[in-house]
Simulated scan of single mutants.
Amino acid sequence: MKRAFTYIASSAVAGMAAAYLAVTLFTTPPQEELLTPTPAPPMAPPMALTQGPVSYAGAVQSAAPAVVNIFTAKVTLQRGSSLFDDPFFQRFFGDRFQSPPRKKLQTSLGSGVIISGNGYILTNNHVIEDADQIRVVLSSGRTLDARVAGVDPDTDLAVLKTDADDLPTITVGDSQGLQVGDVVLAIGNPFGVGQTVTMGIVSATGRNQLGINTFENFIQTDAAINPGNSGGALINAHGQLVGINTAIFSKSGGSQGIGFAIPVALAKGVMEQILKQGRVVRGWLGIAGQDITPELAESLNLKAGSGVLISGVLEGGPADKAGLAPGDVISTINNQPLTNAHDILNLIAAVPPGDKVRIKGWRNQEPFDLQVEVSERPLMDPRQQ
């Protein structure tokens, strides 16, 4: 009996030890640990949020209703042709048998931008120049008669007025904040096909001395601009007006990726002067300037780009009265250094007529310092400053 009891006891102890090991080594983890999720890696933001919008429809929908098509008409007299126009017959018969001149209706098209809800429209001067009749067509198809409120040929801008007072207007943006590479869209009526939108980027800013206008500070863009786009809107990606489409550089007459727009900051200033006083008032000296090239600088013993050579002075003009003469070199105006003749044009144009400016320079290699009273710039005088 004693042996049997010892055997049973030792077997029971061995079984309990084996059960403890089995429970310790092979039991599965608690259920709540199996259900704990592994943290997922952060998801990358959608491409549209980091790379810009995938559509500019919102910008176009905001600006397009304020862009109008402009149709103009003018009557010209065209001399009729006949056999007696030949110089041989004119020698014997003179003008007695020449056919009388005939009236001919000439039409053209362009674009414009509604700036105010009471009917003022901004466009290019060359779009409406010499027109006898002007009509504007809204994107909705509504047609209105318009008249010229004022023009500024020096910047190729014009302001039209309609009698409507419930027109959609465009939001004016900041053209001075534009940077090369910014997305822009051109809205207009190219070739008369109807309102069209093209997209590009700002290729350059501050373009001047192109020979297009007297005062130039163009935005260059590769957004397609074609005949009929003139006077239309150049907008940014938010639908804000940043420029007035004006011209293209092209050898074929079509868009080749080099278009120019007048910055809205310049256009707005011109428009405000036209509406306030009927014209744009600019300062004027009555001189013609010439850039100092390296060759010219060597002959005058000057540094190239160190000023502007006066090549002509209008008799009786402000500069003539102050004592300036051809051959003088102007180095600064109101302590602002000059590098080319275009600098004089812009600096003096911004001075109100009647104000005086301080001009420093050299005459026969001797310095001079003069006070000149600025006059109002006369119309149609693109060569003088």
Rank of each mutant, 00 (worst) to 15 (best):
M1Q: 14
T6N: 08
S11N: 06
G15T: 12
A18S: 13
Y20G: 15
V23C: 09
T27V: 09
T27H: 13
T27K: 12
T27F: 15
P29V: 11
P29M: 11
A40I: 11
P41D: 10
A44V: 14
P45N: 08
A48I: 14
G52F: 05
P53D: 07
V54R: 15
S55W: 08
Q61M: 14
Q61Y: 12
P65A: 07
V67G: 10
I70N: 00
D85C: 02
F89W: 10
F89G: 03
R91I: 03
G94D: 06
S99N: 12
R102F: 08
T107D: 04
T107K: 08
S111Q: 09
I115N: 05
S116G: 08
G119V: 08
I121G: 04
N124F: 04
N124H: 03
N124T: 06
N124D: 04
H126D: 08
V127G: 02
D130C: 00
Q133H: 14
V136L: 09
V136H: 09
V137H: 04
S139A: 13
S140Y: 07
R142F: 03
A146L: 10
A149N: 02
D152S: 11
L157H: 05
A158G: 11
V159E: 05
K161Y: 01
D163I: 05
D165P: 00
T169Q: 09
V180L: 10
V184T: 07
A186H: 01
G188M: 11
P190T: 07
V193C: 03
T198Q: 08
M199N: 10
G200Y: 00
I201G: 01
A204M: 07
I212G: 03
N213A: 10
E216C: 03
D222E: 04
A224K: 02
P227G: 09
G232A: 04
A233T: 04
G239T: 00
Q240Y: 09
L241A: 01
V242E: 03
G243R: 06
S250R: 08
S250G: 09
G254W: 10
S255M: 06
Q256R: 06
F260P: 02
A267D: 06
G269H: 12
G269P: 02
G283D: 10
G283S: 07
G286R: 09
G289N: 04
P294W: 14
L296G: 09
N301S: 13
L302Q: 10
A304K: 14
S306K: 02
G316C: 09
K321R: 14
A322D: 11
A325L: 13
V329C: 01
V329D: 06
T332G: 04
N335C: 03
N340R: 10
A341R: 13
I348P: 11
P353I: 11
P353R: 11
G354Q: 06
K360N: 12
R363D: 02
Q365W: 01
Q365F: 06
Q371I: 03
Q371R: 03
V372P: 01
V374C: 04
E376K: 07
D381A: 13
P382C: 04
Q384N: 13
